[in-house]
Simulated assay, not measured.
Amino acid sequence: MRTRPVNWMDNPNADRVKRVAQLAGRSAVRNRRQRFLAEGPQSATEAIRAHLGLLDLSAQTAQFWPKDHTVAEVYYTQRLSSSHPELAGYIGKITGDVFVAEASDEVMHAMSDAVVHQNIIVVAHLPRVDLKPTPDAQLVASMVRVQDPGNAGTIIRTADAAGVDYVIATQRSVDVYNPKTVRSSAGSLFHVPVYTNIDLREFVAAYQGRVFAADGYGDLSLDEAPAAALMQATAWLFGNEAQGLDTDERDLADQRVSVPLYGRAESLNVATAATICLYSSAMAQRGG
């Protein structure tokens, strides 16, 4: 950790501390400064690995998290060396115009959005706003007005695990760079492209595959869906937690698909439904 000269910060009222803390608040601040927080060992590790060029990213994802231009600032406590030595080693490899500082618990607490800080906070650059989703993707997860940060982060994590080409978040969806969403993604935000503020109608019009709407009242049950249908290039639409997909959104889909409920539960959480739907497509597309 000491191979790279670092700064020491112990004043929780310092201007730099306040500027970092502001990134945990309104999305307008993040958008204006083009930066966001990646807190905790998992998110911080993947942000730094992307910065160092250590992730095997697709060309599309590498546009989001370019080598040497993903991380802007790193703050950590002395305990990080013993609790996460590999992460500490990555920090020691950072070069260039990145501000790195060891900080006191008081400073970390003042900057952190979490109830208890996790010994590491990375300030990362937001991706370029001109990046657009490609129309020929094999598998896409679409968050349509999803509002809960935890659900959004979990969907991104699931999408990463299922091998989707990318995720889209439509207008009026939660800010995916909200600290809670970033933490819930457990580092997957840095593995898969997430296109934000997408106009759903324009996306569907351009997309070359089939569009499935995950809908509890859908006319096709997922367990009865033909394998040939699931094997096709597919964009799944996952709706708002309270309202689901509205009529106009459902009408954009080629098929409304429901996840069967075998027990007494009234419905599934949107992130859980997304997991089942995405994996059904992913396994069919991979022949399993």
Rank of each mutant, 00 (worst) to 15 (best):
G92D: 04
H51T: 00
R128Y: 00
S112K: 11
A214T: 11
R79G: 12
L230D: 08
R250G: 06
G96Q: 14
V129P: 04
S184V: 09
V270L: 08
D248Q: 07
K180D: 14
V116T: 10
T154K: 01
L87W: 02
Y166D: 06
T234L: 10
L252G: 01
I155W: 05
P85R: 08
D136Y: 06
D175R: 01
S280C: 14
I198A: 06
A21D: 08
A206S: 00
V71S: 07
R264L: 11
R16Q: 07
D15I: 14
S173G: 11
R264T: 14
V182T: 04
D113R: 12
D215M: 08
A38P: 03
S142D: 03
Q42V: 09
G209L: 08
T272E: 08
S267H: 03
S184D: 00
I156T: 02
N13K: 15
R33G: 00
Q118M: 12
V194T: 14
V20P: 01
V123W: 05
A50F: 05
Q232E: 15
P5G: 04
A28H: 03
M111R: 03
A186M: 11
V194Q: 00
S112W: 10
A38V: 12
D251W: 05
I168V: 15
A44G: 00
A38I: 06
G263K: 01
H191K: 15
A162G: 01
D56K: 09
T3H: 08
L278I: 01
P127D: 11
L87T: 01
T158A: 11
T275G: 10
T45V: 04
K132I: 12
W236N: 10
G287C: 11
K180T: 15
S188K: 05
C277L: 08
F203R: 07
A59E: 09
Y166M: 07
G287I: 09
T181Y: 04
A227Y: 12
D175A: 06
N119W: 13
N11I: 09
A228S: 10
A21K: 10
V115G: 15
V17K: 03
Q255D: 07
V116P: 03
F212A: 03
S280N: 04
A114P: 05
A137R: 06
A101I: 13
A282N: 03
T154E: 05
Q60C: 10
G187W: 06
